[in-house]
């Protein structure tokens, strides 16, 4: 090797030091990001796990002042609220994302939709609750799971719309041309080729939105209201884990505070479980070598 290409020892030491410093900083940042998550989860386990028992998952809340009881109705209630929300947020969000990326490109309507989605994303969740109170609860003259589900569903839309749009735009132009070149109608190409190619990202967007609203309390205060009893009727007030945690955490009774911790633990585990399940199911069919 000619001499001029050699690196002097001093230079090499300096480069190695810089390299170690940069790697060290990267590791440190990672720790800083992950630490709060681990700390929260650890503290929840510490505080909540001891209050978990079979009754927590099978019983409704105990009457005021009494000990025992559980959050079975809140777990089921959260499930119903999230199902209603997803039934609204996922299709509307994905459809709007498809419109933005595939059909409205650069058009006035598309810009309006994108702007609206961004504004909607910034609307405080309590405002969403009040809006649904005015639009649904005040008209029906009763609180309902439906109103809560709609409030959460609308909150899902902007996240899903914008991530779907971004993911669809990342699908290479060559892939769309391949489909059109085969004589596939445009709508079919969008649904079966572009959306399918973008689906891992679109699903991630849906999961992000889902995880975000699963812990929302404020939009439910004036809509689903909460309940101490069993209910699976979407036209009745319904219990939800975040609401139950909110009420119990402020309670003067030791037992209820412990149950609030347990509820928080269960809520996080359920969210992580649901997200992991969807990931598992949707990546199961992925082929060898698919990018």
């Amino acid at each position: 090797m000619p001499n001029e290409y050699r690196v002097s020892t001093a230079n090499r030491m300096r480069r190695m030091a810089t390299n170690h410093l940069a790697s060290g900083l990267a590791v440190l940042s990672t720790i800083l990001v992950v630490a709060p998550l681990v700390a929260i989860f650890g503290y929840l386990l510490f505080k909540g796990a001891s209050s978990l028992n079979l009754a927590f998952f099978t019983k409704t809340p105990a009457p005021e002042g009494a000990t025992g009881g559980g959050m079975a109705n809140a777990i089921v209630g959260s499930g119903i609220l999230l199902a209603v929300a997803s039934a609204i947020g996922v299709p509307v969000g994905i459809a709007a994302g498809i419109f933005l990326a595939e059909f409205g490109r650069g058009g006035k309507l598309a810009n309006l939709v994108r702007f609206t989605a961004d504004v909607l994303n910034g609307v405080p969740s309590i405002v969403m609750g009040i809006a649904m109170y005015a639009l649904i609860v005040a008209r029906q003259k009763h609180y309902s799971a439906l109103a809560g589900g709609v409030a959460l569903g609308i909150m899902m839309i902007p996240t899903i719309t914008r991530t779907s749009e971004e993911m669809l735009l990342m699908v290479p132009h060559a892939i769309r041309e391949a489909a059109l070149g085969l004589g596939v109608p445009n709508w079919r190409s969008v649904l079966s080729i572009t959306l399918r190619t973008a689906s891992p990202g679109v699903i991630t967007g849906c999961m992000l939105a889902f995880a975000r609203i699963a812990g929302e309390t404020a939009p439910l205060l004036f809509t689903a209201l909460g309940s101490q009893f069993w209910s699976v009727d979407v036209n009745q007030p319904i219990a939800a884990l975040p609401l139950q945690i909110y009420v119990y955490a402020a309670s003067p009774y030791e037992d209820q505070i412990r149950q609030a911790w347990a509820g928080a633990l269960v809520l996080i585990v359920l969210i992580v479980g649901a997200v992991s399940l969807v990931r598992y199911v949707t990546t199961r069919g992925v082929l060898k070598g698919a990018s």
């Binding site: 059109l180 085969l182 004589g183 689906s199 992925v286 698919a290």
Partner: peptide
């Protein structure tokens, strides 16, 4: 209909990745 009767192969291979 036209594109169904007239096939096209592009410059870069573009199989559907999924």
């Amino acid at each position: 209909e036209i594109r169904r009767r007239i096939g096209m192969v592009f410059q870069r291979p573009n199989p559907f990745p999924t």
